[in-house]
Amino acid sequence: MYQEERLIGVIQFLKENRRISIDQMCEMFNISRDTARRDLVKLEERKAIVRTRGGAILPTSHNAIKDYTNRLKTVSFEKQQIGSKAASLIQTGDKIILDTSTTVQACANRMRPMDITVITNSIHQAEILSNVEDVSIQLLGGYLQKEHQFLYGSSVIERLKSYHVDKAFIGVVGISEQGLSIGHEEDGMVKRNMMQQAEQVIVLADHTKLGITEFFSFASLNDVDIIITDLLPNEDFQKQLEKFNVELIVTEEEESDLWT
């Protein structure tokens, strides 16, 4: 097998398994450890991988996190499905926390008039729910993050500690075996404290967030009760969720059931 063929094989393996070891390469391609190392050096020179001790991983994908206004324009059908399912879990009398994410905003958009209390640090979530009858809103005051339209800082965190709620709805930029992560530390610190004040933590994440680890990790899978997503994740990730007793709700599967 030519080197270029092996390099293509390595990248394909990494896309499916996230990491590869030199021993795995030797077994896959029937090559020596020295040849495997030379292949990894070649891929590293092309910036296609990041070499680790004994193997390689794919480089972190640093997709630009769009400002909130632009993200609002790209709320996908999948996020709307996730938001609708999340809203269906809210019951009369609930006290809930909503974070600032657009997927959680999709939940706010689907909430019907009922006697509930909503705590949020999102200006957009508060504005949406101000038009929904019987919903009481507690807007957490703090510094305004102008680009993404959320309030943050020590005053937000201190205020959060005074509340005890039934459910917290949390959005992420990444969720993996390393836990929940976000692009902004100040946002992540608020999310962490929101989760700590809730009896039940419900994470809303479309399939593009699964298996991703972003800049700032703010919680582990052990802190999560339910994940709502649109596509069934791979088997390894499902096993991780089972390990931590996280319930998985997949909107695509529920929609399929309606037609069977």
Rank of each mutant, 00 (worst) to 15 (best):
Q80L: 09
S84K: 14
I228F: 07
T103G: 03
E255L: 14
V10G: 07
V50A: 06
M194K: 07
R38P: 01
D257R: 11
I157S: 01
E147P: 00
K79W: 03
T120F: 15
G179C: 12
Q145S: 01
M25W: 01
Y68A: 06
L140M: 13
D206K: 06
M1H: 06
A168M: 02
D99Y: 10
K73C: 03
Q240L: 15
P113V: 03
G93N: 05
I49F: 13
F77A: 02
I22H: 01
V201N: 15
A198Q: 09
E254L: 14
R6D: 02
C107E: 08
Q125A: 15
R37E: 10
V203R: 07
K146M: 12
V250S: 02
F216C: 09
I170M: 07
S256D: 13
D206F: 11
I170E: 06
L248W: 06
D67G: 01
D225C: 05
L140Q: 08
N17V: 01
I96F: 08
P113L: 04
I22K: 06
A64T: 06
V10M: 15
V224S: 02
K239H: 14
D134Q: 14
D34F: 00
K161G: 11
I123F: 15
T92Y: 14
S84G: 10
V190E: 07
T102I: 09
P233F: 00
M28S: 03
T35E: 05
V250I: 08
R110D: 10
Q81R: 08
I182L: 08
K47E: 10
G183Q: 09
E214H: 04
S130C: 10
G174S: 09
L139P: 06
V135F: 11
I202D: 04
A56W: 10
V135W: 15
I116H: 03
R46G: 07
I128S: 04
L204N: 04
K243A: 04
K146E: 11
M194P: 00
R159H: 03
Q200V: 07
